[in-house]
Design a protein around this nucleic acid. Sequence first.
DNA 1: TGTCCACGTCT
DNA 2: AAGACGTGGAC
Length: 338
Amino acid sequence: MANETDGDFSARIIAWQLENGRHHLPWQGDNPYYVWLSEIMLQQTQVVKVIDYFNRFIEAFPTLTDLASADEQSVMALWSGLGYYNRARNLHKAARCCVEKHHGQLPDNMTDLMALPGIGRTTAAAIMSLAFNRPEPILDGNVKRVLARYFKVTGEPNSGPTLKKLWQLAEQQQTSENPRAYSQGLMDLGATLCTKHRPKCTLCPLHSDCLAYQDDVIKHYPEKKKKPKVKAVDLYLYLGFAQNKPELVKRDDTGIWSKMWFLPEFESKKALRQSYPDSQHLASIQHVLTHRRLTMHIFIDGNDKARQKPIQRDNLLTLPHPSALTHILDYYDNHHLP
DNA sequence: TGTCCACGTCT
DNA sequence: AAGACGTGGAC
């Protein structure tokens, strides 16, 4: 369904990418494991921070087989602070699937890739095009923004009908000429020029044919997302110490921070006092997630007088833990006078 | 400072 | 369809 203009779209992006795109990120190249890991990390974190996490991860688990052989706890520990911990669990599970079913390699077709936990169409297509240089359309957040503006696609960005339109456009523009450069270029363009705020349209190789630019309505594309409702939740947490290290427990396997190590949590102040009658309230700290506003009520041992500072944290290096734990310990170090 | 927002998969 | 899932950067 490609016409003359469509061919130009991909040609311009490839030319722009070869000249202006990123070429030296640590995961770029034909290693599917690197591409996969980077795609999962990049879904939730910016490039600068991903570079550190990526390098540490690869150092610990240099190959897919190494990852499959690792235990889940050590994988999760290296993910601490990144958030969305189910993505790390799926990564680990998928690595084991690859060893069992695919000779320790990532498959090079969409069906088998999408059968792996945590890999949907977008991630599978990124692996296909970036690692295997195969012509498979991608549609991540950057590409959605580029297409929505270029073609003036209306509708809520993540609604079924809008996604269908965007995937169709992505398929129509797909080229078999240098698919790796095309996919990388589309994403780089969205990340560096076609940004949400203050896009640099005059530098964009597409601007002469961009419908939203022509009509001076870039601001209105893509449409805004509906905002999720945020529920307020109170957590009652006990901060105790042994040898100057925080006492941690492993959370159960449902809900927020499942199976991560954190402070013992209670349903109420009363329940906490039943277990720790001498505890005293230290502070109540706000911690906001996408869908929850947590108020963490921190209680410490009332006899906790001559505590050394700072708290020893070396046990945290090997234990998967959420950033909220770091925040609480930082608060203690900064406010609790011995 | 608070408020808004990104991001793809699974259920 | 719509909500769960975490963190931190940008405004």
